[in-house]
């Protein structure tokens, strides 16, 4: 019995030693709590609001309209609903969806499942789509946002809306929340990046060629003209460029101070 107690005592002392060292011998660090997830309240959302979320995402965060427009970079989204059946039956179709909602969802996360003829990556013979998986990478749409886009496309295309509003979306639209509370940007080139000017215009390091070159725009245009062109792009059209290409809602999405900064910047480019 004496031996037994001695052994127990020894073992407990050893454990106490390890515990003591771990508690007091090394710096006490409190690990960072897990990052919080911001949520949009989908529970209180009506289907109309959900569809509206889809539209906002499509035009904004999803950056879909940068390519899916009349300029022929990507197929028009309006063509989805009339053609879905045909595409799903096509032998080139590699996906597994059976209906419209599934097809739209699939096209967003697996763009190469079906590549509309003529829109594949050059050299791939229309087997690989140049479109990124929009649920990942810099676009990073959440499941809720993807579903909202499906809902919007179904609704605007006149099909029956078959998706349901998800009840819980985890880290759904933290970007969405960001966008609503974001601070005005002061650096003009950052403003240009934020609003995607460089996609069409030549500005800063971007070399867009769909809109007028802005690198020396200050030499020929004054501030008044530039500001008007940002806020109401269809009022004055540069020669050789069409109307309705540049977004006309910049007045709604930009801070006034941002409009002024970028106007100043453009006016100074001579």
């Amino acid at each position: 019995m004496k031996q037994f107690l001695a052994v127990i005592g020894f073992s407990l002392l050893t454990i106490a030693g390890f515990t003591g060292f771990s508690n007091f011998g090394i710096p006490r660090i409190e690990p960072a709590p897990p990052p919080t997830e911001e949520k949009i309240d989908l529970g209180a959302m009506t289907m109309d609001q959900f569809i509206a979320l889809g539209e906002r995402t499509l035009n904004g965060k999803g950056t879909c309209k940068l390519c899916h427009n009349e300029l022929g970079r990507a197929p028009m989204l309006e063509e989805i609903i009339p053609n879905t059946e045909k595409r799903l039956a096509d032998e080139r179709y590699k996906g597994a969806s059976k209906d419209l909602a599934g097809y739209i969802m699939e096209s967003m996360v697996m763009p190469s499942a079906y590549v509309v003829a003529g829109f594949g990556k050059s050299g791939s013979n229309d087997t690989v789509s140049p479109m990124p998986d929009v649920s990942t990478g810099s676009i990073g749409l959440s499941q809720a946002e993807l579903l909202a886009i499906v809902a919007y496309l179904q609704d605007s295309g006149g099909a029956e809306v078959t998706v349901e509003i998800p009840t819980d979306v985890g880290n759904a639209a933290d970007e969405e929340a960001d966008a609503e509370v974001r601070d005005p940007i002061t650096d003009p080139l950052e403003i240009a990046t934020e609003f995607g000017c460089g996609t069409c215009h030549k500005i800063g390091e971007d070399e867009g060629d769909l809109g007028p070159d802005l690198t020396t725009i200050g030499a020929t245009r004054d501030r008044e003209y530039l500001r008007r062109s940002i806020l109401y792009p269809n009022v004055d059209l540069a020669e050789g460029y069409e109307a309705d290409i540049m977004p006309d809602d910049l007045g709604d999405t930009m801070f006034a101070v941002e409009v002024e900064r970028i106007t100043d910047y453009l006016a100074g480019l001579k």
Partner: peptide, 10 residues
């Protein structure tokens, strides 16, 4: 992932 330059990098 980190969000800089207005983009998200993995």
């Amino acid at each position: 992932a980190v969000k800089v330059f207005g983009k998200r990098y993995n």
